[in-house]
């Protein structure tokens, strides 16, 4: 098991290095930073000074090494717009995004798992068919449009819930959170529900498929033949075997929730990383873009690594494979 974990670790490091090269080449070579950094009216001397200041006159490999050096220190340079370190800006907004993503994941699990279980256990009931058609709609509805419609119905027409911002926050462990205040919770509800919609459908369908795969298995038949109560068969024998795909999905989808929060955050003016990156792309704020991309790469590599390790622990077959 240790060998396989070490091997995965090496792969993870390789992925991070590969992505630094891609992002570096992409941003520094394909996009021309000089055009972005320098006022078009600047004279020749001014241009040369700025180029030298950012090290853009250096050979490419040295620029890359400088980039890596900065990366290791978490230094991506100052934001052109805010004039503050890019990494700091992103970390400042991380809690808001995390809060949104975790809430959305919780909503998706609370709705997706039981509904999927129900649809899988009783596939021929009309209610199950309704649930499944509903999930197709959940897949097809464009998230941003649903967000707008939520605002239209619950904020504009009914006036129940606020449309933007986080509302008042409360400090816990040195970080400010919305869900600790009633008003903040009201602000959180619509965006979290919006972000959760797609994932609810996904978890629902996955759970249903899993249930239908597990039910005909011999160990479920055996459990029933032993005379175990239906509740126990489902809770222990069915649910336990569903956990492997579900754990993978939770892990993977948590990352994708953070990535997809760019949309929800833009609609509900939620002050998280996603809104920051969209603003930065629009304003060509290069240091913030690079810092965000590297941060996401790191996040995904770490998540994938954790999932792989969980796999090895949960599923003995993976362990045996790596020994062979």
């Amino acid at each position: 098991m240790v060998t396989s974990i070490i091997r995965r670790l090496i792969q993870a490091v390789f992925v991070v290095v590969a992505m630094t090269v891609i992002v570096f080449i992409g941003v520094n070579v394909i996009g021309n930073p000089v055009d972005i950094l320098i006022n078009p009216d600047a004279n020749q001397a001014e241009r040369a000074r700025v180029i030298a200041h950012y090290g853009l006159d250096q050979p490419l490999w040295r620029q890359y090494l400088l980039f890596l050096q900065g990366l290791l220190h978490g230094d991506f340079g100052n934001s052109f717009v805010y004039g503050r370190p890019a990494m700091g800006l992103i970390l400042e907004r991380l809690p808001a995004t995390l809060e949104l993503a975790i809430s959305a994941l919780a909503i998706a699990l609370v709705f997706g798992l039981p509904l999927g279980l129900y649809a899988g256990l009783y596939p021929n009931r009309v209610s199950s068919k309704l649930i499944m058609s509903g999930s197709i709609l959940g897949f097809s509805l464009p998230t941003f449009w649903v967000g707008l419609m939520l605002i239209m119905v619950f904020s504009v027409e009914l006036g129940w819930l606020p449309t933007n911002g986080r509302g008042p926050t409360l400090e816990l462990f040195g970080v400010r959170w919305s869900f600790l205040t009633g008003e903040g919770l009201r602000h959180l509800l619509l965006p979290a529900f919006n972000l959760a919609l797609f994932k609810t459908s996904l978890i629902l369908r996955l759970t249903r498929a899993g249930v239908q795969e597990v039910l005909p298995q011999d160990y479920v038949k055996f459990a029933r033949a032993k005379g175990l109560r239906e509740r126990r068969v489902i809770a222990v024998h069915v649910l336990k075997n569903l956990m492997i795909p579900v754990v993978t999905i939770i892990g993977l989808e948590f990352g994708s929730l953070i990535a997809f929060s760019v949309v929800t955050e833009s609609i509900f003016a939620w002050p998280g990383m996603g809104k920051l990156i969209i603003d930065s792309i629009n304003l060509l704020d290069r240091p913030v873009i690079v810092a965000y991309l590297m941060m996401m790469v790191l996040l995904f590599v770490v998540l994938n690594f954790i999932i792989d390790v969980c796999y090895t622990i949960l599923d003995p077959r993976v362990r045996l494979d790596s020994k062979a």
């Binding site: 994708s256 990535a259 997809f260 995904f300």
Partner: peptide, 13 residues
Amino acid sequence: SFPTILMALMMLA
């Protein structure tokens, strides 16, 4: 291992 929207954002950036 990266979601589509992140790849798309990266390319558009």
